[in-house]
Amino acid sequence: MEEHLVANINAFLATTSSDAIKFFNELIGVLYHAQISYRFIPENESIERFKHKTNELLNLTNCSIHIIGDKYEPVEALGMSKPEFQYYQALKHLKNNNEYRIFIWRPAHYKDLPKDKKQREFIFNILNNINENIIYSTHQSPIMLVEDIRSIMVSQIPAKFDVKETEIYLIFNEIDEQPALTIKDLLSDVASVETTSISLSSDIDYDNFIVQQIKKSVLPVIYFKKATTWANYFIKEIWRKTGGLSSKKTFLLIGDESNPENKNINFSAPNVQKIITSEELIPLEIKVALDNIKNKVQV
């Protein structure tokens, strides 16, 4: 599964301190056998060339690997050590390229913090400024590091479905199909409506499709009349899959009051509006909810 995507990893190996050279060499061997391409700057380059090459290689790669040892080893012309310089350059590169990844490896061999104060400060700086694109590892072996690199760089793209922009996205269980389609007909006069009927005997992979369609909808609506139990579990799963409270999407969970069980539906969340009402008022309530969202957007 991951093999065909390994070729897409192109790593820049940052210079490391002299005490960590053996890890550097081990890593090269592992990268080679993992069929991951890599580049690094040879030892004997001038400082100017070193600076130039650093930026060049950062541009040519899609991730960088920085091995952090115990020694600082500053270079006067840089004002700091070579590893530290390259790390900051990588951070700058990251600002312009959101897809870039920075892997920091402090081998488990280094159990304590370095005695060298500058190197300690460098490590604290790294630790305290980790963001989404920076991964900090303390693995024992470079093989574990490379496994992590592979699993992070190889992104699994879920199947894309042909989903449409819509105002209302109506989801219901197949046992409530009849009344749901009546609601759809009534709403179609005043808004664009897409529907999905959940059927247990269907082959469709619902969860990815529904998540994608919800993203393209103004108001996702889960309607239920007889399928109370299903609705209770379904809203939880869908709320979870679309990011829960961190999502800005408002859901409407609307049920028919003619089924007394529907009053027992117990899921609640700030971005899930729950209404149990008579059949005739359901399209109305949906329209009102939609209008409220649209008004909020305008305001």
């Binding site: 197949e174 247990l200 969860d207 139990t229 299903w230 579990y233 379904f234 939880k236 799963e237």
Partner: peptide, 15 residues
């Protein structure tokens, strides 16, 4: 279990 109840586990009956 929640996936089954939410309809993502396809089987004969609805519940």
């Amino acid at each position: 279990v929640p996936n089954a109840r939410a309809g993502f586990f396809k089987a004969t009956f609805n519940s």
